[in-house]
């Protein structure tokens, strides 16, 4: 392996500072923790490419850029998986569905939502972003984000209702 250069050190700083936080967001957006770990690595590999190509590219504050790359990485990965699943369907007559025996906690419930809904919910609940900021990140309208969030709330409320029955009495905003 080539010896680390100044751009590598810069990305190393960012990696140390942001990896845990970004991994948490990725874990909510992806279908599994392993997927989240791989997405996170892709994000920092992208950062390395950019920083090596244009030293000084990643200026402070760099985390909004990293978060945006994460959102796009998750979408790209989802598209790749989708293609893989279609191929698998054509090869196999039966694809086993994930088991429903396990307890449906809120994270598992989130991971069963469609990708856009999942991303909106992750950015809203974990990153405390408002609908406008989420819309900018995801290249869609604030109205779309609101709709996605309302639907996500309905699903997550149902999942939470097992532990907190009072939640089921509350109106979905």
């Amino acid at each position: 392996m080539a010896s680390p250069t100044a751009p590598d050190f810069r990305v190393e700083e960012l990696y140390l500072a942001h990896r845990t936080h970004l991994l948490s967001v990725a874990a909510a957006m992806c279908r599994s923790r392993e997927d989240a770990e791989e997405c996170l690595q892709e994000v920092f590999l992208t950062a390395l490419h950019h920083e090596r190509e244009t030293p000084g590219y990643l200026r402070d504050p760099a985390w909004p850029w990293l978060r945006k790359v994460l959102v796009h990485t998750v979408i790209a990965r989802h598209a790749r998986e989708q293609r893989g699943r279609e191929l698998l369907h054509s090869l196999l007559s039966h694809v086993p569905k994930p088991g429903h025996e396990e307890r449906l906690d809120v994270l598992n419930a989130l991971r069963q939502l469609p990708l856009r809904m999942r991303q909106c919910a992750a950015l809203f609940y974990l990153e405390d972003l408002d609908t406008r900021a989420i819309a900018e990140l995801m290249d869609c309208s604030p109205r779309t984000v609101e709709t996605q969030l309302r639907n996500a709330r309905k699903h997550l409320r149902h999942a939470l209702g097992e532990d907190y029955p009072d939640i089921l009495q509350q109106e979905v905003p």
């Binding site: 909510a28 994270l107 709330r153 905003p173």
Partner: peptide, 12 residues
């Protein structure tokens, strides 16, 4: 509801 979801999600 939102606070409860956020709290549970972070814990999970």
């Amino acid at each position: 509801l939102d606070d409860r979801i956020a709290q549970e999600l972070r814990a999970c």
